[in-house]
C-alpha cells in the first residue's frame, strides 16, 4: 500500500469507529421499547399499573414497543430474583412494584431489596384511609384514638390484607403517632378489600384501614365516612376529609407504585426512562387512563425515588420492629 491508500484507509477506519461508537452509544440509551415485568398475575394491581402505563406511553407516541411478562411467586420475590439473575438480558425491562417490596424485604420474605435493583421512578400512589360506617359513633379520628387508649380491644381495625402488611402497618403508624401503643392494636385480617368492606358494612367490624382508592366509591355514596387519610395535604377528590398531618400527627404514608430496572442498566438509561415516565404524565392519554383507574400521580424520579425508598424503609423498619415483626 502507498501513503495515499494508507491515509484513506485510516480515515475510513477512524470514521467507521466514530460512527459505530456513536451508534453503540445511542443504542445504550434506546428507550423506544419497554418490556414490563409484572411480579403478579394478570388482572392484579401491578398488572393494571404496568399495562396502563404501557398503554399511555404507546398511545401518546412516546414508546414504539411495549411487551408484558407476568411472573408471580413469592409475593413478588421471584420477579426480583429474575431481574437480578438475568440482568444482562433485561436491557429494556422495567419491573413494576409497590410498597410491599420494602415491607417484604424488611421482614425477610425475600433476601433481596430495592437496593439490588435500580429504582427508576415512582409514578402513582394510593394513600391510606380509615373508614367507618355512616351510622358509626365516630366522626373524628381523635375520638377513635381516645377510645383506643382507653381500651384497645374495643377499637379493632380491619383490613383486606394479612397481618403485618400495609393495612395493618398504616393503622399502627397512625396509632403510634397518636401516642398510643401500636402493639396493642388488634388487627382483623380479611381476604381482600371487598370482603373487609362487606364486614364493615355488615356491622362486624367498627373501623377499616384501607386505601383511598378502594374506599372512594362507598364514601361518595354516603354509606361510609372516611375519618382521616395519610396524605400530607387534602386530596382533590376528598375535599372534606382531614389528613392526619393537619390534625397534628406526623404521619404521611403513600402506597407508591413504580418501576425498577436491572442492576446492570446504565445510569443514563435509568435517568432517560425516569424522564419518560414523568413526561408521559403530562399527556392527555395518561390523564384518561389515570382517571379511569383512580390513580393519584406521585412522580418521584431517579435519586429522589431512591431517597424516598430509603426513608420509607427506615420508618417502616422501626415500626415493624416495634410490632414484633422484626427481631
Amino acid at each position: 500500500m502507498n501513503i495515499k491508500q494508507l491515509t484513506l484507509a485510516s480515515m475510513a477506519i477512524g470514521l467507521l469507529s466514530f460512527v459505530s461508537t456513536s451508534v453503540v452509544a445511542n443504542e445504550k440509551i434506546d428507550i423506544k421499547k419497554i418490556h414490563f415485568l409484572i411480579p403478579g398475575g394478570p388482572g392484579g394491581g401491578w398488572d393494571g399499573t404496568a399495562r396502563g402505563t404501557g398503554e399511555a406511553l404507546m398511545k401518546s407516541g412516546k414508546l414504539e414497543n411495549a411487551s408484558y411478562q407476568n411472573m408471580s411467586g413469592g409475593g413478588g420475590g421471584k420477579a426480583i430474583a429474575y431481574m437480578i439473575e438475568t440482568a444482562e438480558k433485561q436491557k429494556n425491562t422495567l419491573m413494576v412494584s409497590s410498597t410491599p417490596i420494602v415491607v417484604r424485604s424488611l421482614s425477610g420474605v425475600f433476601p433481596q431489596s430495592f437496593r439490588d435493583l435500580k429504582p427508576v421512578a415512582g409514578t402513582i400512589a394510593d394513600f391510606g384511609a380509615f373508614v367507618v360506617r355512616k351510622d358509626s359513633k365516630y366522626y373524628d379520628w381523635r375520638d377513635v384514638l381516645a377510645d383506643f387508649k382507653q381500651n384497645p380491644r374495643k377499637v379493632k381495625f380491619s383490613g383486606g390484607s394479612s397481618r403485618g402488611s400495609l393495612d395493618h402497618l398504616v393503622a399502627a403508624m397512625a396509632i403510634k403517632a397518636g401516642r398510643a401503643k401500636p402493639r396493642k392494636l388488634v388487627y382483623v385480617a380479611y381476604d381482600g378489600g371487598g370482603k373487609a368492606m362487606a364486614a364493615l358494612l355488615s356491622g362486624e367490624t367498627a373501623i377499616l384501614s384501607t386505601g383511598v382508592g378502594e374506599a372512594l366509591t362507598m364514601a361518595k355514596s354516603g354509606d361510609v365516612r372516611i375519618l382521616a387519610i395519610t396524605s400530607k395535604e387534602r386530596l382533590k377528590v376528598l375535599p372534606d376529609t382531614p389528613t392526619l398531618t393537619e390534625m397534628g400527627y406526623n404521619v404521611v404514608f403513600a402506597n407508591w407504585r413504580g418501576f425498577f430496572a436491572a442492576p446492570t442498566m446504565s445510569d443514563e438509561k435509568v435517568a432517560a426512562y425516569a424522564k419518560l415516565l414523568g413526561d408521559v404524565q403530562e399527556t392527555p392519554e395518561w390523564t384518561e387512563i389515570q382517571e379511569r383507574n383512580g390513580w393519584v400521580n406521585m412522580y418521584n424520579p431517579d435519586s429522589e425515588f431512591y431517597a424516598f425508598l430509603e426513608k420509607q424503609e427506615k420508618d417502616l423498619g422501626v415500626l415493624m420492629r416495634e410490632l414484633g415483626f422484626l427481631k
Binding site: S162, R163, S165, H168, V188, A189, F325
Partner: peptide, 9 residues
C-alpha cells in the same frame, strides 16, 4: 395450611 397464614402473617 401451607403458605402464609393471613391472620398472623
Amino acid at each position: 395450611t401451607i403458605g402464609t397464614d393471613q391472620a398472623s402473617g
